[in-house]
Design a protein around this nucleic acid. Sequence first.
DNA 1: CGGGGTATTGACCCAAGTCAATATCTGTGG
DNA 2: CCACAGATATTGACTTGGGTCAATACCCCG
Lengths: 245, 245
Amino acid sequence: MKREEFSVDCSACPIRHKAVCSRCEPDELDELERIKFYKFYPAGQTVAIRGEPLETVASVVGGVATLTRSMEDGRTQLVGLLLPSDFIGRPGRTAIEYDVTAVTDLTLCCFNRKPFEDLLVRFPHVRERLLEMALDELDAARDWMLLLGRKTARERIASLIALIVKRSTRPDGSVMGTGTRIELPITRETMANYLGLTIETVSRQLTKLRADGIIELDGKRGIIIPDLGGLLAETGDDDDGGMIF
Amino acid sequence: MKREEFSVDCSACPIRHKAVCSRCEPDELDELERIKFYKFYPAGQTVAIRGEPLETVASVVGGVATLTRSMEDGRTQLVGLLLPSDFIGRPGRTAIEYDVTAVTDLTLCCFNRKPFEDLLVRFPHVRERLLEMALDELDAARDWMLLLGRKTARERIASLIALIVKRSTRPDGSVMGTGTRIELPITRETMANYLGLTIETVSRQLTKLRADGIIELDGKRGIIIPDLGGLLAETGDDDDGGMIF
DNA sequence: CGGGGTATTGACCCAAGTCAATATCTGTGG
DNA sequence: CCACAGATATTGACTTGGGTCAATACCCCG
């Protein structure tokens, strides 16, 4: 469970520059440091369940988690993919709204809700960053609504791959252009639940995109993109919004 | 265009208790009052277009507007329904992300973006409320993702009617239980774009719900709900989240 | 009374779902 | 190191919910 792999020193934290704490001054960081604690979950483990009391909030430090909503008959929709630096939980709410599941080994930087809320009042930098992140997520959710409401299966798959490529872009800003290889952090089932499709359709469309030379499949999880432009053309998006820096 | 119908006096504003300004102290309200201005749009008019510079932000005072995202080939998805008290625009962004259209006559309480952003720094009450509203919208968007990704046409229609019923609940909290009548604020086309369906499917499912005694159609826009419980059972949601006070 | 927008209804079709068989991985223990 | 078991993924055959295309019907409003 490699508990000691992540420093307790915020200044060396891998998500220091992107998480809720990204704009904190040294003194603010000191205080965060005092109340934070890490939690680790193995792949597949449930992190939180809808309806339970919301006691802690957290930032994803490493690994991938999903935010899902399900219906009684088992139909499941992924409503958010949580990657490093993403925030989990909502200050001001007392119950959990969505199921959270670790899809890879997961490391969270946690805060008890109450102290965090207090801190939110006193630290404008955290508040501002949280608002900004909430608005970004809102935009992402709305883009996803277009995908779920109007895109074809092929466009959905292409959009998801494009999204992963975008989020895999190295923090130094270097664009991974032609000949990129990405590793899907999720199973076909999770992909299906994200895209509002079935695993069979996901599988078939991946095969078809490969047959059309848009992607190459490299083992179960690897995808090679010979031509990023070709992939983006399949997403159905007008590319003006898709600035990759 | 009934320009004078709405007071310039915030204390008499119909959305005083729900909008971004709802938590303001009298002195904060005074300052808002000085920089705000009203705009009026007739039904059908475009309010903002994706890609244009974002110069003003606003609260919906009266009427209904839609937030949409479209693809080049005309496929359109509604990503938000803006009812009185909802906020339009995103501080910190310089370009408009979604098309905004008035679907009924619309009254907006506007602020120029820059002064509003300054004010956001100084007025914690506005900031807090804006964060809260953004998080609420995020939850709403995610619930809608479940609808778009996994619900059947019938469930989608029932969910939309249930949503309108909920939002039509009078502010005094009185529940409009059995025998409620609501007025749809939108056309079949707008409904279809919200639900990720076609007008034909919307029409057919409404007819079917009527045939099954779940709703009664009263003219083009009116819907009577003889039994709210019956309607909610058709939405596919487990009802625990659906507390209507 | 007539005309343009809006809504309903019908006939047909197809993209994606369902059901089912098979293949491929991955890890585990002999 | 191999074999085997249980996930995970692919592929095929068939079905179906909702889309498409097209004809009417409705309904304000001038």
